[in-house]
Design a protein around this nucleic acid. Structure first.
Lengths: 237, 237
DNA sequence: TGACCAAATATGGTCTGACCATACACCCGG
DNA sequence: CCGGGTGTATGGTCAGACCATATTTGGTCA
């Protein structure tokens, strides 16, 4: 015989809502973040220490930390020192990307919905950029040049993403930028196939140049129109 | 002495990128989803079986499944039978909500950015609804009536969310709806405080009725204007 | 034969304790 | 003062056990 009879612990009330241990840990950590005003860069206690504090096993703590890591708010480093352990971060981009990619894989979201969402963000962002987004012009021009120099669809798409991310970044809104980034990363494969299908990138580049010109001239309406036509060309249907 | 010396296993190439075991499991499961065309409702093998197939410990499998559950693509039920075990699902809403809430808690995203994003979606959705969203009118009217009857800020906000979700749903785009839902859920507390601060909900309800009228008449421009003014009132600054 | 109840069983959930690889901290000698 | 060796805290992984739950199975009784 080994182990301890634990069958009578954690009885709360007549019906006990059956909170999983790792969820309890999750909530406690979130509480601590908001209550103690923890912010990016701060360290959480070690897994063993958290386990003792919360009276759960290290496995449960690890599952909770894994969930937080998946949401992009903690990042664990091994070893020792000030940078080791679970550190609070904030990487909504990769988390959003995974979320979209996997849900697309289960075909609960259609490509049409993703493209339409992208169109919404891009119209909104380019209108902002046309009004006061001079900072993005250089980045956009560089991306266009890099696309001209690209020799493979993969390379082209890489810089295409950079071009459109420059527009999104010009809006100054990190949330829409993160969503945009996640959308592009999640459908990267699809975009490469689209370039292959078109065969020629001249039309796409002409669109890019029109967008760049319209933003340069500060013409919001023309910018929106150019972006709309561009996406209609890239994702017909 | 117990255990087995494993120090020489998993050496691949000169520099081995040190893939964590649970990431390997994650990739394998994702592969299986796309390759085998698994879809919502299908079951994954049990944790013990997966562990044996992939030659890792059950803990690593569990961490991978926990990550997938956090992204809203699997859901685990205990017990036995066809519905037990890890089942593929697709709940982007709750995953998005957690993602936003936690990243907001770390103040990497400002409330301004969230509200602006919401404005973007809502303008886009209400324009769609005005064009062909008659299905949403009843739902909107019901929510307005429920807000009239609400006695607490919490209750009011609950139906306010329902009102705006009806608009989002009318767009027919599940991705934007999911983002909208996540935005509202993540800032629910903030919205309740806003209602308390305003003290009176008459102006908000007047806005809601204007939006409903504009959508009823199919006037997209008026709908967008009404939504814009509504959000400016609710979240000044 | 059919309905009902009890045992077997498969599943996720949790715990314990161990070992490994890593990377900084510390100390000691030159 | 500096360089290297050792100590040690940290996450990563594993193995094995037990628990709670829910279905399946099979037997018993009406």
């Amino acid at each position: 015989m080994s182990g301890v009879d634990r069958s009578q612990e954690f009885r709360r009330g007549p019906v006990g809502p059956r909170t999983r241990a790792y969820e309890e840990v999750l909530n406690r950590i979130e509480e601590r973040i908001t209550a103690d005003g923890l912010t990016v860069g701060d360290r959480l206690p070690g897994e063993r220490q958290l386990a003792e504090q919360l009276q759960v096993s290290r496995s449960s703590v690890r599952e909770a930390l894994r969930a937080l890591a998946t949401l992009g708010v903690v990042s664990s480093q091994v070893g020792r020192g000030p940078d080791a352990g679970a550190v609070l971060t904030s990487r909504p981009d990769s988390a959003l990307t995974d979320l979209l990619r996997l849900n697309l894989g289960l075909s609960t979201l259609s490509m049409r919905e993703v493209v339409d969402t992208r169109l919404m963000i891009e119209q909104w962002a380019v209108a902002h950029a046309a009004r006061d987004g001079e900072g993005a012009l250089d980045e956009m021009a560089r991306a266009i040049a890099a696309m001209d120099a690209a020799t493979t669809p993969e390379e082209f798409v890489e810089h295409d993403i950079a071009f459109h991310m420059a527009i999104a970044a010009a809006s100054g809104n990190r949330l829409t930028s993160a969503i945009m980034r996640a959308l592009r990363d999640a459908v990267r494969r699809y975009a490469i196939d689209a370039v292959l299908r078109l065969g020629d990138t001249a039309d796409l580049q002409a669109d890019h140049r029109r967008i760049h010109s319209a933003v340069t001239e500060g013409d919001a309406a023309a910018s929106v129109a150019a972006v709309t036509e561009h996406l209609a060309r890239a994702y017909p249907g």
